[in-house]
Design a protein around this nucleic acid. Structure first.
Lengths: 152, 152
DNA sequence: CCATGGTGCTAGCAAAAGTTAGCAGGTGCA
DNA sequence: TGCACCTGCTAACTTTTGCTAGCACCATGG
């Protein structure tokens, strides 16, 4: 059993797999489930996660799509790509400049975003799950901003 | 390129090479120059441009960087990735790029944002339920419901 | 006329990606 | 107790990437 150190030769693939696994677990997906959604085999995804393999562009796109994240972001977070490559940072700026949202929706999104940040500042773990659970399972018919923007 | 059974990639890589060559010529770069800047060999880049080879994620990033374009844009413009499928807007990009949010929170924000867009697309009046239903089950539905039901 | 240097393309090989088949470990059920 | 089924991982194999070496073509100019 060779200890494949993560911080070894730099943030090559090890951290990508690490970040990838973190994303997968965070999305409550099993290895096979994500592999199935991404259209790759389970052992291959396993090897990617453990830094033994580097995914091709298509596979990376599929994985990112299945995880609802950007492939570029995947690489940035993995340390392969530099963040200033062309990725903007400000969520608020992006929201207010979005042309597909109404002003009320923008305000709601900003509220939710601010509440998340405040939540993380106060308590970084337990309360977050509760707040997320409300947003994540909008079983009720009320999906307007009120349904998501109340927890602070 | 047989192994893609589940994932729906659709178009061939030929259009990617076509778009790539178009970009290279537009940048007044020779094949060898771009290959050198991207850190790949000239014949390999030639084969990519003519659809004979599919670049890996790293190579794609390098090429995109050398051409000052987004790797995701490269794939989107090539028709491999649909613009609204992954992350097309700057809001989504900003959200996933945010370091102050947990992954669950990012997911939630993305869901809310998508639901807003869906609402605006459905538009006009009270067909909110249909729009929300679409947003609530965007992916495969078999593992998705399992994932959300397995909370706790 | 033949060298020099530019363009892109072909052949063949080493390495890595990505596959299927199958193994140990844990859990729920009858 | 054992079956069924899940989790992830290993092994052996096939396919693809991406390389070096070298070809043919077109220009410039010695």
């Amino acid at each position: 059993m060779v200890p494949m150190a993560k911080g070894k030769v730099g943030k090559t693939v090890g951290s990508l797999g690490d970040y990838l696994k973190e994303q997968r677990v965070s999305a409550r997906l099993s290895l096979r489930q994500l592999a199935d959604q991404a259209g790759v085999s389970n052992p291959y995804l396993s090897q990617i996660e453990r830094g033994l393999r580097k995914p091709s562009a298509e596979v990376l796109q599929q994985i990112a799509k299945a995880l609802r994240i950007s492939a570029e972001q995947l690489y940035i977070r993995a340390g392969i790509l530099s963040p200033d490559d062309g990725v903007g940072g400000s969520v608020e700026l992006a929201i207010v400049s979005d042309t597909g949202l109404t002003e009320r929706q923008k305000q709601s999104l900003l509220d939710v975003y601010a509440s998340f940040l405040a939540l993380n500042a106060a308590d970084t773990d337990g309360s977050t799950e509760a707040a997320v659970a409300q947003v994540d399972a909008p079983t009720n018919t009320e999906t307007d901003s009120d349904a998501v923007a109340n927890e602070g």
